[in-house]
Amino acid sequence: MEFLQYEFIRNALMVGFLVSIACGVVGTYVVIKRIAFISGSISHTAYGGIGLGYYLGINPMVGATFFTLFSALAMGEVSHRMKDREDTVIGIMWAIGMALGVIFVKLSPGYTADLMSYLFGSILTVPHNELILVLILDIIILLTVGLFHDQFTMVAFDEEFAQVIGISTRFYNGLLLCLIALTVVVMIRAVGIILVIALLTIPPSIAGQYTRSMGSMMGLSILLGAVFTTGGLYLSYLFDLPSGATIILLAGTGFLLSLLLKNITGKIAQEKRWDM
């Protein structure tokens, strides 16, 4: 395949694979815990970090890492303290994060041309040092999940009971949001801030329809993520389309197909039952 002979494509496939691991694992928690809104919000505040990076003259990805971690912790506190107005406040923080980014970028000296690549992704131009950053973040995510999977599951399943038996829901909720923040950073280069939430939630929502345990849901999500990023990359190469958007559209198509399939197989199973 001539597609594979270019180093930047092999690099991109590597990033796609690392992204699939992070979003398959963390996305599964996002879907079962129904926190897609907070996650989308965290991903948009990353723009503030990108802007801050430009402004301070450091790598925008490093700026994004710290900024999203900070906003994840802030949102964790908000949802802990203001259960009743949680969604409103989180929506406000989303907007503030982005607005800060716009201001920082405007104030930044010099050249900010690759801004669009952070917003919509550019998996084909990931520099080597960012590949390393993504790898390190992936390892941190996997280690944390390996250590605290049962606690995360319990807090997601029944927060009140977790509290009753003495599991700190505040700590584990906060830690999970930090993992989401790191996952967002991992995904920014692949699909961009705006599209992160789709790739984070689509593979686990498909996987959830066909699996009955967390482990298999995560495994299938990783596989689907790899299929979507690799396939999207190939299609974008073939038709000369933007890679991030192509990956998302492929994932979206996969989601619709799985819904359709589920509907059809569900109907057939039902008819069979009545036939007997």
Partner: peptide, 20 residues
């Protein structure tokens, strides 16, 4: 109140009681 689609088995729910 919990989510019917939550992928967890009866035995794992009971085990959770011992997590702490």
């Amino acid at each position: 109140v919990f989510d019917r689609s939550f992928p967890i088995k009866v035995r794992d729910v009971v085990l959770m009681g011992r997590l702490a």
